[in-house]
């Protein structure tokens, strides 16, 4: 298929049930947002995976540069006091 005639790529986010976040599940091609939602319904929710769909055209996503990983992420490595690891979580609290 001619590159210019290819449908744009869309990133798909599915909320699996009420109270949970939309989660990135993958991407697909579609001519516009409406078609992207319908395609996502058929590609990603045919086994009851979701109750809500978000679609974002891939070109609108800005990603961090892998070369910046050291400066971006490593400083957080040895700051364990930022994690709530020193508390006991009651069993009733789910999805933390």
């Amino acid at each position: 298929m001619d590159k210019e005639k290819d449908w744009p790529l869309w990133e798909i986010f599915i909320r699996s049930r009420a109270g949970l976040n939309h989660k990135h599940v993958g991407s697909l091609h579609a001519a516009d947002a409406d078609m992207a939602i319908e395609n996502a319904r058929d590609v990603y929710t045919r086994r009851n995976e979701g109750i809500s769909i978000w679609v974002v055209e891939s070109k609108h996503i800005t990603a961090s540069n892998p070369e910046d990983s050291e400066s971006l992420f490593e400083p957080a490595d040895n700051k364990i006091y930022r994690h709530p690891t020193f508390y006991n979580l009651p069993d009733e609290v789910k999805h933390m």
Binding site: H29, E38, D42, R46
Partner: peptide, 11 residues
């Protein structure tokens, strides 16, 4: 014609 429609039609 494309994977997405293939799945839609099969559904």
């Amino acid at each position: 014609p494309v994977l997405e429609q293939d799945i839609a039609l099969t559904n």
